[in-house]
Design a protein around this nucleic acid. Structure first.
Length: 563
RNA sequence: GUCCCGGUCGUCCAGUCCGGUCUAGGACCCCAGAUUUUCAUUCUGGUAACACGGGUUCGAAUCCCGUCCGGGAUACCA
């Protein structure tokens, strides 16, 4: 008692000290950061021992549709955990739903995973020591396990028809039973009864014999300790009459066969995890560590479904999102690199990733933040890389030949827009004005052109000035010397490049001198000129525009706009 | 219906396990300012949250209970 008192006083005293000092905010923040760092290496709670010395994780998609956001994230967490633990990451195709599985879906899933930058050590197509990796090629394994369970009494044959099962369920519902499931009619069939069913030509399912009212205390890497009573579970079907297994059974047989140590999957599988634990036990194997991660929600807070737009990963690719950004963004849906940082590489993620740090609550997908993130990554590209990456989206805006004849010029154009777009497909509509004969003036441009009565005169005078200047030639003439010498966009502090042609800085100097001579305010002059040259009021600095457009095009546009 | 899980700015992520350094932090969005020839970038600043109610405690975002709300599961889908 006395000790408790002393402890309380000590703690209270510490509080007073702190309060008196009036700790400044910066100090508090530093302390917070420090403690966050210290906590980093620590696990949220003790995890049970691992069952296998080599971590082996799998992503097990069913090829019944495209790779969607949730699946991609599940794959990613499995991948990251495997890499973080120095283990193996493998792919297993759960294609036992023969009505819906297609090879096309499988290809889309594999393409999506590769696009996001995930690699796997074993899987379909490339094989591995634990194959085959498609469940339909493993039927003999399920058969063998089924026989074992049947023999041990953990499973039984069920001759109920779907109609009978449905009827049984209706009865339970009517009786307002708390739990609704299979009623266990075939649980204890005699050999005689079975023979009678067989004689009627009925083909049996194999069902698991669920232990009655047993309380399981399980540990989930994400959820922690959870208790589940088996009376919430029914005798689920393991094997169809034709020998094709159902999810839970196939999953367990394969997780055993493939020596899986950690299972990361959506929380819709939590109860399946319980069934699977029982199955592991019945088969005399230890079960892997489970991590059931919360779902990704749509804007309405519901489970992301196929009906929600753009759940297909490849649509993001096709829209011009960068894989690094999508990877980075998805990782953040349920997991944080740290409280202070949003941007990280795959490698950085692997260095700190822990399954125990995955959050428990569902996350809504926010396309705006993804867009922002994509812009962050896009701005980090060199102009040449950016050009290379955006090429597929440029084909309608840029003449094909230009890619080989004017790479430096195109790179300069792209560079001018790199900080003005976020996704690759956004370049094309913005750079079109450079490739037309004369630009179409939008509303803002027309306004800027008409604002001052004298503007058209300025344009003509400026055209004359440019005619006598040393501007680079206009596309399609060769202007490599200019574009190689000058890297756009022009930054204020940048040194003036040495170039055989006028650089944007020189063009600006001449222009400022010109407006002074003209007696026009620089700002007033710039807007109509920009409108005449580019057809819009937005875009790169005016002198980058003049430089990119080149001599003839500038003159032509200025005179056209003046008439 | 029954079972499980969750609830911190509009959104995502920290902080919760182990109560005081939280006057609750970072990011997106939004707003304002700075820079500037426009837009954008960049920089500075701002708005904005511990679902609610009890309890425990000197002290609760943090521990306990209840309520409400949300999500998931309850297939011869995975």
């Amino acid at each position: 008692m006395r000790a408790i008192h002393r402890l309380a006083r000590a703690k209270f005293g510490r509080f007073l000290q702190v309060a008196e000092r009036g700790v400044p905010r910066a100090v508090k923040r530093a302390a917070r950061l420090r403690s966050a760092c210290q906590r980093w290496g620590r696990q949220r709670s003790c995890s049970p021992r691992m069952i296998n010395p080599t971590p082996r994780l799998r992503f097990a998609p069913s090829p019944t549709g495209p790779l969607h956001l949730g699946g991609a994230r599940t794959a990613m967490y499995n991948w990251a955990a495997a890499r973080a633990l120095g283990g193996t990451f493998l792919l297993r195709i759960e294609d036992t739903d023969r009505a819906r599985s297609t090879d096309a879906s499988l290809q889309i899933i594999l393409t999506g995973l590769r696009w996001l930058g995930m690699d796997w050590d074993e899987g379909p197509e490339q094989g591995g020591a634990f194959g085959p990796y498609s469940q339909m090629q493993r039927l003999h394994l399920y058969r063998a396990a089924a026989d074992e369970l049947l023999q041990k009494g953990h499973a039984y044959l069920c001759y109920c028809t779907p109609e009978e099962i449905e009827a049984g369920r209706k009865v339970m519902e009517a009786a307002k039973a708390g739990f609704i499931g299979y009623n266990g009619r075939c649980r204890n069939l005699t050999a005689h009864e079975r023979a009678a069913f067989e004689q009627r030509g009925l083909k049996p399912n194999l069902r698991f014999r669920m232990p009655a009212a047993r309380v399981l205390k399980v540990h989930d890497l994400v959820r922690g300790e959870v208790e589940v009573n088996t009376k919430e579970l029914d005798d689920f079907v393991m094997l169809r009459p034709d020998g094709v297994p159902l999810y839970n059974f196939a999953c367990v047989v394969d997780d055993i066969g493939m020596k899986i140590t950690h299972v990361v999957r959506g929380e819709e599988h939590f109860l399946n995890g319980i069934k699977q634990r029982l199955l592991f036990e019945a088969l005399g194997s230890e079960c892997p560590l489970y991590a059931h991660i919360p779902l990704i929600l749509n804007k309405d807070g519901k489970k992301l479904s196929k009906r929600d737009a753009d759940t297909n990963m490849l649509e993001y690719r096709d829209k011009g999102y960068l894989p690094d950004a999508v990877f980075n963004y998805i990782a953040l849906l349920g997991w944080g690199f740290s409280g202070e940082r949003d941007l990280f590489t795959r490698q950085e993620m692997v260095e700190v990733f822990k399954l125990e740090h995955i959050g428990k609550s569902g996350a809504k997908f926010d396309e705006e933040k993804l867009r922002w993130m994509c812009g962050e990554y896009l701005r980090r590209f060199s102009a040449a890389d950016c050009l290379q990456n955006s090429k597929p989206w440029l084909t309608n805006a840029v003449p094909q030949a230009a890619f080989t004849t004017h790479p430096a010029w195109l790179a300069n154009i792209i560079a001018c827009y790199q900080e003005r777009v976020a996704i690759l497909s956004e370049f094309a509509p913005k750079i079109g004005w450079l490739f037309v004969d004369l630009p179409v003036l939008d509303e803002a441009a027309q306004q800027n052109l008409g604002k001052d009565q004298a503007a058209k005169q300025w344009l003509l005078r400026y055209a004359d000035l440019l005619a006598n200047s040393n501007l680079p030639p206009s596309f399609p003439a060769d202007r490599t010397a200019a574009d190689v010498a000058v890297s756009l966009p022009t930054k204020k502090a940048a040194a003036v490049a040495s170039c055989a042609f006028a650089t944007p800085q020189q063009i600006e100097q001449e222009c400022r001198a010109f407006t002074e001579q003209l007696g026009v305010k620089f700002g007033d002059f710039v807007h109509p000129v920009r409108a005449a040259l580019s057809g819009t009021d937005k875009g790169p600095g005016l002198f980058d525009i003049v430089f990119l457009l080149g001599k003839d095009a500038c003159i032509k546009r200025l005179r056209a706009a003046a008439s």
